[in-house]
Every structure is written in C-alpha cells, then in structure tokens.
Design a protein around this nucleic acid. Sequence first.
DNA 1: CACTGAACCGGAGAGCTCCCCGCTTCATTC
DNA 2: GAATGAAGCGGGGAGCTCTCCGGTTCAGTG
Lengths: 187, 187
Amino acid sequence: MTPPRTTQRADARRNRERLIATAAEAFASGQPISLDAIAKRAGVGSGTLYRHFPTREDLVEEVYRDQLRPLREDAQALLATQRPAEALHAWTRRFAEWAGERRGICEALVAMSASGRFGRGPVCDEVQRILETILEAGAQAGELRSDVDPVDVGGILAGVLSVAGAPEQRAQLDRMLTVVVDGLRQR
Amino acid sequence: MTPPRTTQRADARRNRERLIATAAEAFASGQPISLDAIAKRAGVGSGTLYRHFPTREDLVEEVYRDQLRPLREDAQALLATQRPAEALHAWTRRFAEWAGERRGICEALVAMSASGRFGRGPVCDEVQRILETILEAGAQAGELRSDVDPVDVGGILAGVLSVAGAPEQRAQLDRMLTVVVDGLRQR
DNA sequence: CACTGAACCGGAGAGCTCCCCGCTTCATTC
DNA sequence: GAATGAAGCGGGGAGCTCTCCGGTTCAGTG
C-alpha cells in the first residue's frame, strides 16, 4: 500500500517555515549571509534548503512577498492624487527605495529576468500587476503609451536598478528613471 | 642598492599576454570556462591571473578591447545615412548583437556599473564615447534631448542587456530599446 | 501496533572565486 | 659575474554554491 502523498509532510513544512523565518531575520540585519549559513542557523542541512528553494531568488521572493502591500497602496495613492505619468514616475522612485532597503531584491529581479523567469514569483507578479494598473490608467488618460507590456517595463526597471540600485547612486538612478518614464509617455 | 623598478618585468608582461590570449581563445569557443582553468591552460598559477586581473571584468575588458572598432564604424555609418534618433536606435540594436556574441560582456558591464566602475575600462570607455557622438549629433539636430549624460545612457543599456541579453529574448529586448530610445528623444 | 514505501533529510563533496604568503626570478649595480 | 632586494610567482586554502545519494522519518494501512 503506497498512499500517494497528497499533502506535504509536517516536517517538510516546518523546515520550510523555519528557513523563511531565519532568512528574513538574516536579510533584515543587513549583513551579507551565505545560504549555507542560513541553513545551518535554521538547524537544517544545506540540501534541505536547496530542495525547498532551488535558487537564491526563490528564497528572496518568499521572504519579501508579504512586504509588498505598501507598494501597492503607494501606487493607488499616487494615482488618486496626480496625473498617471507623474504617478508612474513617483512610483518607480518609491519602488527603487523599497528595493534598496531590501538586500538581494535587485539581484534577484535581474537574475529572474535574465533567466526568463521574471513574473513567475510572487514579488515579480505583484510588481507587474501594479505596473499594469498604472499603465492602464495612463493609457486611458492618453498620457502613457498603450503598446507596452508591463513585463517589459518591469524588466527595464529591474535592469536599471541592478546597475544603479545602491543608495549612493541615487542621483544617477533618478536621471535614468526620468529617461525611462519619458519613453513610456504617449508621443 | 634597490633599483626602484621603472618598467614592468619581462616575465610579468609575458604572463599577462599569455593570459589574454588564452582567455580570448576560451571565450571565443563559446564554452563556459572558469578563471582557474584559464590560468592553468595558460601555464600560470591562479594567483598570477588574479594579480593581473583583479576581477573577471578586468580580464573580459582586456580581451574585447580590440574588437570594438566595428562598433564605432557602425555608429559613423549610421549617422551618415539616417537621422540621429534612428541611428541611435539602430546602433543600440547593433551593440546588443555585438554583446550577445561575446560571452561575459553583458555580465561584466552590469557588474561594473553596479560597482560604480562603469566607464573606467577600455570597453566602457569607448561605448560611452560612441554614445556621446550620437547624442551630440542628435542634440544638434534637435532630435535627441541634450540634458543626458552618456554614462547614464550606457548604464541603461547595460541594465537592459543584463535583463534581456540572451538571443532568444531578442523580441523583448527590441521592445525595451524602443522605449529607452523614445525616452531619449527631444520632446 | 507493526509495517511499508514514498517523502524527506543532511552532510560529504565537487567545482568555483579569490586571498594570502613563502619562495623564486629578474634587472640592476658594482 | 656576483650580489641584492623588489617584483613577481604559484599553489594551498577558505568560503561559497549547489548536487548527489544513503539513511531516516512520517503518515497512512491492515
């Protein structure tokens, strides 16, 4: 009798959650930390970590998925108070700030984009949905071009962030974002 | 008597050149190769490699510095036959193609941008100069904005390439480049 | 409860990047 | 051509990522 496992085993779930909690704590501390160190600190073998999270990005995504709400709320507030193009510009800066405070997010976004997995995880997914909302509002208002895919916009943002995501590159990043947002305006 | 070394020792120069030649050959083969393997293949210790080229990017830059001439010639030909904005668009695609054929270039560009060293090596340097030429022509023609720094444009290009530099992402890359170039037009 | 086999675990190990430091080699001087 | 000391060498090793697989544990069954 081989009961075809229908649900996750309890120890597996426990380990997974312990890993996420440990990683969240470690990332929040700001100190760089290796994946093996996270596994050890969680009291788990490295094999277990990699089975649950095949790539570093998977772990990063899981850790930050709950911290996205403010970003969406920002988007709605911005759309309510300014014109869509300005809202987009402001939101991209907000997003850059958010990502800058979270170790590993930029790198993860780029790695996912480059490997064609952008938009498959919870964070990318939500970012794309937010972008879609803003872009649609802008298209309706005739301010933003309507022929552009939120996935592409997310990719551009990820790329720009990977290049100039550090806090001390803030000025450069702002200049780049201006160019990108202008490229998204209706001509 | 300690003669303050004025010129590089002959063995150092020899090793350096051997490393570049070996790396060029290895990169051109398309096979991924580790730096230690390059060192071994060049008949040199890994310490020697890392002393000459502290980061992978330094080696990559050195290997490709001589392969830049076509890119500049492309830029001049494009500027001669079409309007600056179109020339810019065409050149960015040319550049993407060039980078796509050269293993490690995209990664190196991004790594250099992210660490604030973009524009310090021969490749970045030349790319920036080319961009400057095109941007200036565009500004004079009133087609491209004049308030933008070639360094920033190079950074955006590097970022976009890092996200969608693979050959199979060509369509996505083209869409992204359209947005970026539009953002560089005079409004 | 005893049993069973799929699911899961963990740690050894391979391969990579990069640093460190004792030893060797070169260019120079006399 | 011998002596000298700075420049340069190279390999061992630390730390990281990620895989593999023998052993263990869990959750159903009778």
